[in-house]
Design a protein around this nucleic acid. Structure first.
Lengths: 140, 140
DNA sequence: TTAAATGTAACCCGTATGGTTGCATATCGT
DNA sequence: ACGATATGCAACCATACGGGTTACATTTAA
């Protein structure tokens, strides 16, 4: 969802967009968008002003935003977390395996981010504009 | 968890292990283990016999099992699924972006599996035995 | 000053994962 | 043959998480 919102913002190329409009584009609730925008603000991706007839806009050019950055900003719980199997049983391979899995999963995580880093927001925007084949400023 | 169970089975090197013992090693419930074993059975990784003093054992050598296979067997919901934003609104970038994101996420998924395929169960077993530094057959 | 927008809190809901109990069934060992 | 043992399976509960919804105070441009 974050990618979708940022793509719309990139599509608007710096013009402020209200959360209601973003919500309509993603087909969800404005509040959900605002929650997401707060995260994107602290990550430095967007700038939001309060008040009438304003909204949010990109702070960085789409070329300088890639999916890995968005992933790190948005993702809370690591998909490769080991379920924190507690102590309690004194033995078993279970104890030793944790450390091994941490290594492997960390490697996987970095590989994942390296892959995501290959795709920039500008790239996605290009795909959208090409496949959609529409003129700017008119998202209809 | 699946990796952990399979590692223990590999550790036992073909000897049948009961779900209760596996549960103790992973510190969880035997039923949970059995549910997982059913998946691993249909995936062809393990073989389970019912009855007294038996259990499950590996059907393949640990070298021929890698994390990508386990991932595909166990994982149900794709981590990179787009939330199925329905039609309902006639316009917006939202419609065009779906196709673009599908491409990008599919590429990410394959990259992830390619990374997971690098690590075999035998490799993990090696890490465990080295870091744990214990003799076989006696996980306590 | 007023309309419009954000920030934020408080809920609800659907889904997924894992845990728990209980019981029928199959099978090994004696 | 029989009892001990372990799986298969169903039902239910607890928890966490993402997302949706409503409501309200606050800020700001026009």
């Amino acid at each position: 969802m974050a990618v979708q919102v940022l793509t719309v913002l990139a599509y608007k190329a710096g013009e402020p967009v209200t959360s209601s409009l973003l919500a309509a584009s993603v087909n969800t609730n404005p509040v959900v968008i605002r929650r997401l925008l707060l995260v994107l603000q602290t990550a430095g991706f967007v700038e939001t002003r309060k008040g009438a007839s304003v909204g949010s806009r990109l702070r960085l050019p789409p070329q300088r935003i890639d999916l890995a950055q968005i992933y790190r900003a948005v993702e809370t719980s690591e998909p490769f977390k080991l379920p924190q199997r507690n102590p309690k049983n004194p033995c078993a391979v279970g104890h030793c395996i944790q450390a091994a899995l941490v290594q492997v999963f960390a490697a996987t995580e970095t590989a994942l981010e390296r892959e995501l880093a290959k795709t920039s927001l500008a790239h996605i925007l290009g795909l959208v504009e090409k496949s959609c084949g529409q003129n700017r400023k008119t998202p209809h």
